[in-house]
Design a binder for these strands. Sequence first.
DNA 1: CTCGACCACAACCAACGGTTGTCACAGGCA
DNA 2: TGCCTGTGACAACCGTTGGTTGTGGTCGAG
Lengths: 297, 297
Amino acid sequence: MAVADAGRFREAALTLEITQQAVSKRIAALERDLGARLFTRTARGALLTVDGQVFLPHARDLLRAEERAAASVRPGRRALRVDVIGRRLAPADLVRDFHHAHPDTALDVVTLFDADTAISAVRTGTIDASFRALTFPAHRLPDGIAAARVHDEALELLTGPGHALAAAHAVTPAQLAGHRIWMPGNVAGTEWAAFYDDLGAAFGFTIEVTGPDFGTEPLLDTIADSPHLATFVGVQTRMVWPAGHGLRRIPLRDPTPVYPHSLIWRADNPHPALAALRAHLGTVRRSADTWTPKWAR
Amino acid sequence: MAVADAGRFREAALTLEITQQAVSKRIAALERDLGARLFTRTARGALLTVDGQVFLPHARDLLRAEERAAASVRPGRRALRVDVIGRRLAPADLVRDFHHAHPDTALDVVTLFDADTAISAVRTGTIDASFRALTFPAHRLPDGIAAARVHDEALELLTGPGHALAAAHAVTPAQLAGHRIWMPGNVAGTEWAAFYDDLGAAFGFTIEVTGPDFGTEPLLDTIADSPHLATFVGVQTRMVWPAGHGLRRIPLRDPTPVYPHSLIWRADNPHPALAALRAHLGTVRRSADTWTPKWAR
DNA sequence: CTCGACCACAACCAACGGTTGTCACAGGCA
DNA sequence: TGCCTGTGACAACCGTTGGTTGTGGTCGAG
């Protein structure tokens, strides 16, 4: 880049604060690695070849990417850090929507272990905001931490083609009494576990959260083959389910269980993108005929 | 990336085919350079910290950018290489439009010296297509080279506020007789020079192409201050002119001089993006009351 | 033809990034 | 409790890399 901008090896060496010979060696090594000549050397400087002209913008991209990467962990950074629970749940879509609406706003997305670590990360400023379900009233949040209910995610039943309820157009939670619902993954001790405990207790079915999370594919395989097991998924427009499993998505009604997502942030965080995110999300409009855990009412 | 994927330094070392100690040193050096801890080391592996989670996608971006950069000059590449004459002329906009319509099609844009080198570059396969004005009939192109007239770029007069024609709403080329038109830049010997030679000769004004090109800013400064000099610019919707110069853009009428841009490509080039580009461009519909050089009629 | 500015080549050397060998520490298990 | 295993870190070592200085070849202008 320096040689292309300066037009001369020697002048580039000045700006890089190394010797002309070192520049020569760098360019030679780069050309050797790429297998392409980047400059035509003349007695009055260096001119980009066609390959050089093609390569130059990519080289600039590379340095820009490096700069962004370093800035992402530098204190005093500007990108908004958001904690999103689960990549296949509604908050991931909310963040994508926000990114689509504000493409110039830099976002860094992370996923923390549970709500407690998320809240303390917000408190210390490690992250700027967190999508979580609050399992206690908002006034019991630490001082200076604010929260707003931003999305109620309706749940659907996901079954295999041989499941007893596979043919149903809709199912009520009461109909699930006695059924086995399988939620794999390490949710023990998190707010998800609290949600499922309440849900199962309210309607008399058992939710099994045992077993490690081997990823989404084995889960789907197991569900597809089993006449007894089913699982819950969020009503998502974006998620593309792998075809070929014969899976059924069955709406839940009377009432529809919804998972209450809140956004949590530090009240004194001045980040402009945080204000934009809150404005973009608004607050949830609660719909009738839904069920939420008692701690969310 | 290897450590994050594997979850263990030792396993990452295997995939990288170096020793665990070398991985340790690399991560330590990276953390030192960034000034941030990326992993929390436990007795059963390494877990990403929040900073690590934030940094990881940027690291992946970086390696992707490197891959793209290297691929851009590798023979057997897939990106379409297009030669565009001048970044402030219509072909640049045509390419931008195409990129907007086909955002997934990788494009590399270069600017060659003149039409002859562009044609020979197309012939040898160094580039895939070139936007140029043909100063000779298309049937005199080398064998296997095809061309299509894709855009006629109407010219406007650009003057300073003190210029004799600054107040005019429109100007005919004949009215420019005796005026001085300044086109800086190294256009001597190129198809632009041929165009301007014909244009000046047809209507009796002189076009000065002397002087090196110091960039667009000094050009605009000079034009803005001079009551005698003017220049031509293409009718561009995209170009944002720096404010504060008081510059006037005056349409040319009766007839409007237009610069005839052609796309030149190798007939046997199978690149799918080339077909898409040709389909996107279509062919020019010539409008009445325009002037083109005699070699373009 | 000569001169000056350009870049390349050679020799040298510090420092970087790998290696081997070893250690401290944590968790599982008898 | 104590051993064993697997984790990452540290130390010593060393070849390669990437810089330096010194010099040479080439091209275009005067």
